[in-house]
Nucleic acid binder design. Structure first.
Length: 387
RNA sequence: GGUGGGGUUCCCGAGUGGCCAAAGGGAACAGACUGUAAAUCUGUCGUCGUACGACUUCGGUGGUUCAAAUCCACCCCCCACCA
């Protein structure tokens, strides 16, 4: 563990938005604080995903109770419905959604990828058809900055091109150049000092380590508030993902927050933290909650299973969430099978609690210099997922 | 008592001579899910076998036929309407 000087590690309660304070390191793992206009994000952090301005099945009071520090919103989805201008007229997404803590907005680059049948990349931007009504739209890097500012995002992401895992070298090589040009256009459209919103660049490079390096080198030279690793966990084998992550994470600027986009499982998050990643987001805890997969201190379980039909024990005896403090596995299984809405809420509440406790534990371990032991423990719970 | 309709694999329900172990849906059982087009999707779902396959099944019994869930006879049960 490396302890930084007190004057550096104990800042005043509110520093300039964008300030990232590193408190400690333990191996490559880092313990930090990212200052934003809506509060401080303690890292490493997991960010629940609230694509359309809502963390599915979970209200802000629950999020506060869970200890969520920052959530995601999505540019593409909120632009199409209800529209960023409408949100702006309501004072921005914080006011509209009654969430007063930080919000990170994704740029829509991922939607262009996942809805690729409806989208087309060109130099100017990405043209796509709405999945809602088929209407045609053009997202330029500049347009995406404008939308995110209208939303009042604390952390804006640049528009990027995310490539699929089987994308050939030549295409990927051209793609990172485009992503870099777009990132610089984004920075130009929103120069530092123009507002309190932070701006993160997204590194790409597909599944070629030299292109990953090149992408980082192209972007790291520029003035962004943080750097993300994009385009991982898009269907590639896990060993390949870990290999690229291990290659890329150390290349990112040391003094800036590092964000691994869209990742991941508890094992992925612990692996990312051990490699020096500070921020994570993933739909897994909420989506899996709705589909019956729940994470516990002894591993993950599928609450649908018959073996829980008469199991009167709590979902996780070591969990302090409302769900675990109040209900039995038998009841949770019943709610799932009965397709009760409450099932979504209780399961989501629990899984988010688990993911947030996971990173909270990591923060404490890094500060205490015991991260390796912590990581080993988590890895033992998910040994079957180890590459 | 009369007339008409009907009884299909756990449930609903299609099937009216061979391409039928029998569509489809549900339930059940299992699995997947990674910057959320996900309250979604996939698999299994008569028995035995990994499989090729074998065997048992469509209210009951008997019959016609090379072949019957499907045709015929009788019987049992259900529903509707009329007396």
């Amino acid at each position: 563990m490396t302890q930084f000087s007190p004057s550096f590690s104990e800042p005043p309660s509110a520093l300039q938005p964008g300030t990232f304070v590193l408190h400690a390191t333990d191996g490559s793992a880092r313990r930090g604080s990212l200052h934003t206009a809506h509060g401080i994000v303690e890292t490493p952090i997991f960010m629940p995903v609230g694509t359309v301005g809502s963390v599915k099945a979970i209200a802000p009071d629950d999020l506060h109770a869970l200890g969520a520090e920052i959530i995601l919103g999505n540019t593409y989805h909120l632009f199409l419905r209800p529209g960023d201008a409408l949100v702006a007229r309501r004072g921005g997404l914080h006011s509209f959604a009654a969430w007063n803590k930080p919000i990170l907005t994704d740029s829509g680059g991922y939607q262009a990828f996942s809805l690729s049948a409806l989208s087309k990349f060109r130099e100017e931007g990405v043209e796509f058809r709405s999945h809602l009504d088929g209407s045609k739209h053009l997202f330029t890097p500049e347009k995406v900055m404008e939308i995110q500012r209208n939303l009042g995002s604390d952390i804006m992401m640049v528009l990027d091109e995310c490539v699929a895992h089987n994308t050939p070298y030549d295409y990927t090589a051209k793609s990172i150049e485009l992503t870099t040009r777009w990132a610089l256009r984004s920075r130009n459209a929103y120069p530092r000092g123009a507002g309190s919103n932070l701006l993160f660049a997204i590194t790409q490079g597909g599944f070629f380590s030299d292109l990953r390096t090149a992408s980082v080198e192209q972007l790291a030279a520029h003035d962004f508030d943080g750097f993300a690793i994009g385009g991982l966990s898009v269907g590639e084998p896990k060993p390949q993902m870990y290999e690229l992550l291990a290659h890329t994470a150390p290349l990112l600027p040391f003094a800036k927050p590092r964000y691994l986009m869209g990742v991941g499982t508890p094992l992925d998050i612990i692996t990312g933290i051990s490699l020096g990643v500070d921020m994570f987001d993933c739909v897994l805890p909420t989506r899996n909650a709705r589909n019956g997969t729940l994470y516990t201190s002894t591993g993950k379980i599928n609450i649908k299973r018959k073996e829980y039909a008469e199991d009167d024990t709590p979902l996780d005896a070591n969990c302090s969430c409302y769900t675990c403090q109040t209900f039995s596995r038998a009841y949770l299984r019943h709610l799932f099978h009965a397709k009760e809405i409450l099932s979504f809420r209780l399961n989501s509440l629990h899984n988010l609690t688990y993911f947030l406790a996971l990173v909270k534990g990591a923060r404490a371990a890094i500060s205490a210099g015991t991260f390796a032991a912590y990581a080993a423990h988590i890895q033992s719970l998910y040994a079957d997922e180890m590459p």
